Computed example of a mutant assay.
Amino acid sequence: MTTQHQGTAVTDSIPSVSTFDLSTYLAQRQVTVESALDQSIAIVYPDKIYESMRYSLLAGGKRLRPILCLATCELVGGTTEMALPTACALEMIHTMSLIHDDLPAMDNDDYRRGKLTNHKVYGEDIAILAGDGLLAYAFEFIAAQTRGVPADRVLKVIAHLGKAVGAAGLVGGQVVDLDSEGNPNVSLETLNFIHRHKTGALLEASVVCGAILAGASELDQQRLSAYAQDIGLAFQIVDDVLDITATQEELGKTAGKDLQAQKATYPSFWGIDESKRQANQLVTDAKAQLEGFGDKALPLMAIADFITARTH
């Protein structure tokens, strides 16, 4: 049986992901995203800053945020072309956060994605400026490059993304994270706040911005936001577990940093087994939000499963 709500086909069951080839889907989307990112920033004078920006932007990674944006836009009836500038901007902002997060004043990391961190190659001064440059350029890129989308939707995307990356989102989460280091009395509520803002806000924006670009109803935006918040928290729980159980080679970054920095983590509250169970429950809840979207939801469902199955 199929019913209708807010312009979206609703089915009575969650589609099966067993026949969906996520690895092929991700590989194809990564090629699209990598090509667009490579073309997004040219090296001009002063060369050093553009080289530094490109060094981190093109350093690899899963490209999960831009792929989520593209997948959600298509889920709601939009196209890759409509969402690609925003998808690139999301990766620029994510890269900025990694560059700044790795600085000695923050997490003081030497490796990211298996390569030396930006400040280790270009110096702390240029690394800070490269992050600033990527953040500013991300919003310029959305405004200047988005085609075939009504201006009011583009404006909503810019506002939503600005909130996600600022003091109400990523920056706020990072502040509480820094304040909590070495504090043995951090509560589970505070830990949830940190990660719903520091990690979850940009993942949520990746999904919701794709939906906004395609003209999703308010109801569908809310359901997709709930999906994204759940997978965002699951993503962080798995990250915390991997920081304990994976090697540096598997992670592509320094292992055991959380323990060394005396950070509160989900395994420190729950242990490893319960942390994995909580992550699996969040993924189940996230997938339940996709019930009304039929087979078009297969990419988002498979990505949810991928989050808890990953090893790096």
Rank of each mutant, 00 (worst) to 15 (best):
M1A: 12
T2M: 09
T3F: 10
I14V: 14
D21R: 06
S23Y: 04
T24V: 10
A27Y: 01
Q28E: 14
Q30W: 03
T32K: 14
V33L: 10
D38K: 15
I41F: 09
I41A: 08
V44A: 12
V44I: 14
P46T: 11
K48I: 11
I49N: 06
S52R: 02
S52Q: 05
M53E: 07
M53D: 04
R54P: 04
S56F: 02
G60A: 08
K62E: 04
K62C: 04
R63P: 09
A71S: 15
L75F: 05
T80N: 03
E81R: 10
L84I: 11
T86K: 05
A89W: 07
E91F: 04
E91L: 04
I93Y: 03
H94I: 02
S97K: 07
S97M: 08
D101E: 06
D101S: 02
D107T: 00
D107M: 00
N108G: 01
R112V: 01
G114N: 03
T117N: 01
K120W: 01
Y122K: 05
G123A: 08
E124N: 05
D125E: 12
A130E: 04
G131C: 10
G131S: 10
G133Q: 08
F139V: 13
E140D: 13
I142S: 03
A143L: 14
G148I: 11
P150M: 04
L155S: 12
L155R: 05
A159T: 09
H160S: 11
G162T: 10
K163T: 12
A164S: 15
Q174T: 10
V176I: 13
D177P: 02
S180L: 01
S180D: 00
E181G: 01
P184K: 05
P184W: 02
V186C: 01
E189Q: 09
L191I: 04
R196A: 15
R196M: 15
E204Y: 11
E204W: 12
A211S: 12
A211Y: 06
A211V: 03
L213H: 07
A214N: 02
A216F: 02
A216P: 02
L224W: 13
A228P: 14
A228H: 12
L233M: 15
Q236F: 00
I237W: 01
V238I: 14
I244L: 13
I244N: 01
A246P: 00
Q248N: 02
K253V: 00
A255L: 00
G256E: 00
K257S: 02
K257Y: 00
L259K: 06
A261Q: 10
Y266C: 03
S275N: 02
K276H: 08
K276N: 09
R277N: 09
R277F: 04
A279F: 07
Q281K: 14
L282R: 14
T284W: 04
D285I: 05
D285C: 10
L290T: 13
E291P: 00
E291Q: 15
F293R: 12
D295A: 15
A297V: 09
P299F: 09
L300Y: 13
L300W: 12
A302D: 12
A304C: 08
D305P: 06
F306L: 05
